[in-house]
Design a protein around this nucleic acid. Structure first.
Lengths: 207, 207
DNA sequence: ACCTGAACACCGTTCAAGT
DNA sequence: ACCTGAACACCGTTCAAGT
C-alpha cells in the first residue's frame, strides 16, 4: 500500500503497474496477487487512504469554520497526490475511512442546524467545488509562476487579439500580474459557497 | 472523429482502442496513423468537439441567465458523453472550439459588469461546479431510481447505524424518498453560486 | 503459505513492404 | 498517397509448478 502510493507520487499514475510495484518491493509481479485480488483493489485502498488524510470536521466547532478547514485540507491533500483525483473519479465502492469521513461531514452540517435536504444540497455543492477545482488545477499546463509567464507570453504571441479580446485582457491584466497563482482562487469560491449556505440555512429556518 | 465519439459513447472509453476504432472503420489499426499523429491527438479532438457542443453564452442576454443556460447545457453534454469528463481531465492544450468557448464566457462576464479579477474568480468557480458535479454524478454507482433504491437498502442493511447515524438518516429521509435524483442538486449549487457572484459584483461596484 | 516462470490476450506504436 | 503484416515493448492476469 505505502509502496503503491509512493510510486504513484514519485513517478505518476501511469507508472503504477503491477510489474513496477512488485519490482519496488523486490518481488515478481505475480506475487502481488497473493496479497490483493487485483489492481482495482489496490486503487480502492489508495482512495480510502486519501480520504483518511482529509481533516475530519467536528461537531464541537462552528460548522462554517470546521467545514472550511476540511475543504482546504482536502484541496491540499489532493494537490499533493496528483493521481488522487483521477483515481477517485473511477472508484465506485467507498472504503471505511471514506464512509467515516462522509459521516463526519454530514453530522457537522446536521449539528450546525441544516435540515436533511439542505444537508444533501450542501454536501454535493462543497464537494463539487473541491473536486472540480482540483481537477482544473491539475490540468493547468503549468505549476510555477515562471511557467505561467512563459506560457502566457507564448499564447498571447500566437493568439489573434481581435478574436479573443477578453482572453488576452485577462491574461495581460490578471494572469501576468506578479503574485498570480491559480490555487488562490480556491478560497474565493469556498467562502462564497459557505456564505450562500449560511444564507440558505437562515432563510429555511424562518419558514 | 465521429467514429471515435460513437465508439466511446456506445462501449465506453476503455473500448476506444486504435484497433477497435480501425475495425469500425473497416481498416487496420496502423492505417489510422496516416490520418492522425497518435491516440492523444484523437482525444484532443474529442475534447474540443465536446466544448463545441456547449451552448455559447452571449453578450446580448443578461449575464446571469445566459451563463445559467450554458452551465446547464455543459452539464447535460458531459452527462450524455460519460467519457468526456475523464478525457477533459487529462488534456493540456485547448483546441479552437475550446478557446472560442472560453472567450465567450469571459466576454459575457466582462459585459455583465464584472471586473477582470472577479471575472477570473467567477469563471474558475462556475467551472469547478460543473466539472466537480459531473465527476461526482458519474461515479455514483447507480443511474435509475430503482438502482438507487436497491443500493440504498443494501447499504442500510449492512451499515451499523450507531456508527453512521447521519448517513442512515440522509439515506432514509432523503435519498429513499420518491422523486430523488442526484442530478437535481446541480441547479441548487448553480443558483447559489450565481447569486453569490451577483452579490460580489454589486459590493465591488460600491467601492 | 508464499513465490515464480511461462503464457495469454490485450495495448500503442514503428517500420519496411506492398498497391 | 494510402494501407498492411510483422514486430516491439509494454499491460493485467491465470495457472501450473516450485519451495
Amino acid at each position: 500500500m505505502r509502496a503503491a502510493i509512493a510510486l504513484a507520487d514519485k513517478e505518476g499514475l501511469e507508472a503504477l503497474t503491477m510489474r513496477k510495484l512488485a519490482q519496488g518491493l523486490g518481488v515478481e509481479a505475480m506475487s502481488l496477487y497473493h496479497h490483493v485480488s487485483n489492481k482495482e483493489a489496490i486503487l480502492n485502498e489508495m482512495v480510502d487512504w486519501i480520504f483518511g488524510e482529509f481533516r475530519l470536521p467536528t461537531t464541537e466547532e462552528p460548522w462554517k469554520e470546521t467545514l472550511r478547514a476540511r475543504a482546504i485540507s482536502a484541496h491540499d491533500v489532493l494537490v499533493s497526490h496528483p493521481w488522487a483525483i483521477h483515481v477517485i473519479e473511477t472508484r465506485r465502492d467507498p472504503g471505511p475511512l471514506t464512509l467515516q469521513h462522509h459521516e463526519a461531514v454530514l453530522a457537522c452540517l446536521r449539528h450546525g442546524g441544516f435540515s436533511v435536504p439542505l444537508t444533501a444540497h450542501a454536501y454535493a455543492l462543497l464537494d463539487s467545488h473541491i473536486y472540480g477545482f482540483v481537477m482544473q488545477e491539475m490540468t493547468l499546463p503549468f505549476r510555477t509562476y515562471e511557467e505561467v509567464e512563459e506560457l502566457a507570453e507564448h499564447i498571447l504571441a500566437q493568439m489573434p487579439e481581435e478574436l479573443f479580446p477578453s482572453f488576452t485582457e485577462l491574461t495581460r491584466e490578471y494572469i501576468l500580474k506578479p503574485g498570480y497563482a491559480y490555487a488562490n482562487e480556491f478560497a474565493f469560491g469556498l467562502d462564497l459557497i459557505l456564505d450562500g449556505l449560511e444564507r440558505a440555512k437562515e432563510s429555511e429556518q424562518m419558514t
